[in-house]
């Protein structure tokens, strides 16, 4: 008979396993803000751009939504986290900017400083 603490630790291990199974250990992790406010600012279209990019063959990327981090005036926000580098957080990301992030950052590794928060 397992105790609650043991059960929850097992659940955590399984959860971590499932997240990794979804590609969490990819070199790049992309997070798109998807709270009501971000969606109102247009983040659904932005998410679609990244989804499409992955469908079109951009590999080694873990894509996830996230809640609101509080930067209302700079929404929609997109975060690109690469192992061992400073996390890059882009503000006011339009679908066009998202396409540029795919082309320049994800494909060529270029950090687009002028859109960074």
């Amino acid at each position: 008979m397992l105790t609650p603490m043991q059960i929850i630790k097992n659940k955590r291990a399984e959860a971590v396993h499932r997240i990794i199974g979804k590609g969490y250990l990819s070199t790049r992790r992309v997070y798109v803000g998807m709270a009501t406010c971000e969606i109102a600012a247009g983040s659904k279209d932005v998410m679609q751009v990244f989804r499409q990019a992955i469908a079109d063959g951009v590999t080694d990327v873990y894509l996830s939504q996230k809640g609101c981090a509080g930067r209302c005036n700079l929404e929609p926000t997109v975060e690109v986290i690469e192992e061992g580098k400073i996390p890059v957080k882009y503000g006011r990301v339009s679908p066009q900017r998202a396409r540029d992030i795919v082309e320049r950052h994800l494909k060529k590794g270029e950090v687009i400083t002028e859109w960074m928060i």
């Binding site: 996830s64 809640g67 609101c68 981090a69 509080g70």
Partner: peptide
Amino acid sequence: NCGIIDPE
């Protein structure tokens, strides 16, 4: 966790 995890 807000803005860090996938809430869904």
